[in-house]
Design a protein around this nucleic acid. Structure first.
Length: 290
DNA sequence: AGGCAAATATACGATCCATA
DNA sequence: TATGGATCGTATATTTGCCT
């Protein structure tokens, strides 16, 4: 039987070691044994248990409730959550239906239900972004038109904004400053909005300047706000410059590392710069801001 | 010895919630 | 709706154990 330290449990479950000790003290959530010299150690069964507890905790269950549950119930609930999250196809179809019908209420209700069921992040990453991808395909095949796309984007933007606002704004000690913007002619704002949500949730400071930002204003804002990082997402094709040229200009304007992602960047870019960091996906971004 | 991780105790801020 | 208590997560300080 393998021995795991409390820091192992922390890094594998995401539950802070200190929190584990407090839970143990307050809720008898203790499954660990002690060495002869009073050091906690855990086995793989304990790890499994805390992984499940973390899942429930992230899905809105209170620790006081979890601590009173029999382990069978915990397993059952986690299974329910996981299978619910693993079947997002039906949810995507639901959003597509509401979009084709341009039914705002149905769209809102679906999103609200999803966030209750599986949380904001799962909803965005497993349902909303795949949904947008499908919208793109349908648009190309003329099944739906630009109005549908705008309709859906707007509803999603509203939802992200509401969720961002309702975050408790507890800034952490080592909070970093992020400047969020889209360059001229870039209107695809949803990824940026979601980035704002993730940053605020992680306790960082955000200056959100939105879409289609002229270079002059970006420069002013950058000089004034003095961000630790700038973040942008390039999705479109631009009439006035290549993606490489835009990245070059942005690196010149900004005094901070530029984090960049998006469809237009992830194809292939030859330009590199010591301040330029390409984020291949949302997981890379989350890791970076953790 | 000295550096570091772990344990422990205490306290605080934010949020939730029942009761007036 | 406001107010006071309970709950929850985290911060800080100090001590203890482990390892070169």
């Amino acid at each position: 039987m393998d021995k795991l330290s409390i820091s192992h449990i922390e890094s594998l479950t995401g539950i802070k070691a200190h929190t584990l000790r407090i839970w143990e003290q307050r809720y008898n959530l203790s499954r660990c044994k002690r060495t002869g010299t009073n050091i906690r150690y855990y086995d793989s069964e304990d790890l499994r248990f805390f992984l499940n507890v973390a899942t429930l905790s992230h899905n809105g269950f209170k620790i006081s409730e979890i601590s009173k549950m029999p382990e069978k119930d915990i397993d059952a609930l986690v299974h329910q959550i996981n299978t619910g999250a693993a079947q997002p196809d039906f949810k995507i179809k639901q959003l597509l239906n509401a979009t084709v019908a341009m039914d705002a209420n149905a769209f809102d209700e679906s999103l609200d239900t999803f966030t209750l069921e599986m949380g904001m992040q799962q909803t965005m990453e497993k349902v909303v972004f795949p949904f947008l991808h499908q919208i793109g395909n349908l648009w190309q095949s003329k099944t739906i038109n630009v109005a549908h796309e705008h309709f859906a984007s707007h509803k999603i933007a509203q939802k992200i904004s509401v969720e961002t606002r309702s975050l408790k704004s507890t800034e952490r000690m080592d909070a970093r400053k992020y400047l969020l913007f889209l360059p001229p002619q870039e209107q695809h704002e949803l990824s940026l909005l979601y980035a704002e949500y993730l940053l605020k949730k992680a306790g960082h400071k955000v200056l959100y300047l939105g879409a289609d930002l002229p270079y002059a204003i970006l420069q002013e804002a950058s000089d004034f706000f003095k961000p630790d990082y700038a973040l942008t997402v390039l999705t479109s094709a631009y009439s006035y410059a290549t993606v490489e040229d835009i990245l070059k200009s942005l690196c010149n304007i900004l005094n901070a590392p530029l984090l960049v992602s998006g469809y237009a960047v992830l194809q292939d870019i030859k330009f590199s710069h010591h301040h330029l960091h390409v984020l291949p996906g949302i997981e890379a971004f989350k890791k970076m801001i953790h």
